[in-house]
């Protein structure tokens, strides 16, 4: 299992920080405490953190302000806010700005731990609607981008593959053989919490696939060789969506 950077827990309530840190530690995550925004920022500047969990209402800067500071230098760092107060406009605004979730206290710890697990795994699956040659080409390109893709050939292999901490898998669809919807359903069933992107060579006949895929939380990406950055962004977006869902209701899907 890949070693994940620590999680920074920020709250002016020391017992809250302690219990959370202890819990995470017991669950195999590294967690570090901070008791106000200033301290948190100093720590973040000093080293990387996998995630920031912060109270909203604190002496000095509040959690939203802290997030806005963090975002400047670490736009991809997942930030989760927690609050004892009913959500207000400020919090709704922060969600729009990119906060992963705003959680009511007491935290649903099961959900939060699921989120942490997902965060640690960083897994993803790319469905390729194309030739085997194209699949190989894409594998090379992804590898060049820092992914470590594994090519799969049968749906049955999916579950075992992700249970072995494979981060990224490529799967060549052979949809001319069967119903695409059945394939999507089975993929979701096998790996419910893995981000799945459909790379598709768009034509009119296949627009129906895109619609069906979306229903299963699979986002279509219209493949063009020059736009790998967009694939990356799609995967990131799906991950965020899954993380948000995990935090809100403990499920990968809405």
């Amino acid at each position: 299992m890949k070693v994940m950077p620590p999680i920074l827990v920020v709250d002016d309530d020391h017992r809250m920080v302690k219990t959370l840190v202890d819990l995470m530690t017991v669950k195999g995550f590294q967690a570090e405490p901070a008791y106000d925004a200033q301290e948190a920022l100093e720590k973040i500047r000093a080293k990387p953190y996998a995630c920031l969990l912060s109270d909203v209402r604190m002496p000095g800067q509040d959690g939203v302000a802290l997030y806005r500071q963090v975002r400047k230098h670490h736009p991809h760092m997942p930030v989760v806010l927690m609050t004892a107060y009913a959500d207000d406009d400020l919090l709704a605004q922060s969600l729009k700005e990119g906060v992963m979730a705003v959680l009511d206290k007491p935290l649903n710890l099961g959900n939060f731990l699921s989120f942490l697990s997902f965060l640690r795994r960083e897994q993803s699956l790319v469905l390729i609607d194309g030739s085997r040659a194209f699949c190989k080409t894409l594998e090379k390109i992804l590898a060049g981008r820092g992914y470590h893709p594994v090519c799969l050939h049968r749906l049955e292999e999916l579950k075992a593959c992700f249970e072995q901490d494979v981060q990224t898998a490529l799967f060549q669809l052979k949809l001319q053989d069967g119903q695409p919807e059945e394939v999507f359903r089975r993929i979701r069933q096998e790996v419910p919490c893995v981000p799945v992107v459909l790379a598709i060579d768009f034509n009119k006949e296949k627009s129906i696939w895109i619609e069906q895929a979306r229903r299963y939380g699979i986002y279509a990406f219209i493949y063009r060789p020059a736009e790998m950055e967009r694939l990356h962004k799609a995967i990131t977006r799906i991950r965020r969506s899954i993380m948000g869902n995990l935090l809100e209701n403990g499920k990968c899907q809405e």
């Binding site: 219990t19 819990l23 009913a86 206290k105 007491p106 935290l107 710890l109």
Partner: peptide, 16 residues
């Protein structure tokens, strides 16, 4: 609001 913090701590503690 004031109750939520202690409740949160208790909740964390029990979970722990």
């Amino acid at each position: 609001h004031e109750l939520r913090n202690p409740l949160g701590v208790i909740s964390n503690a029990v979970y722990f």
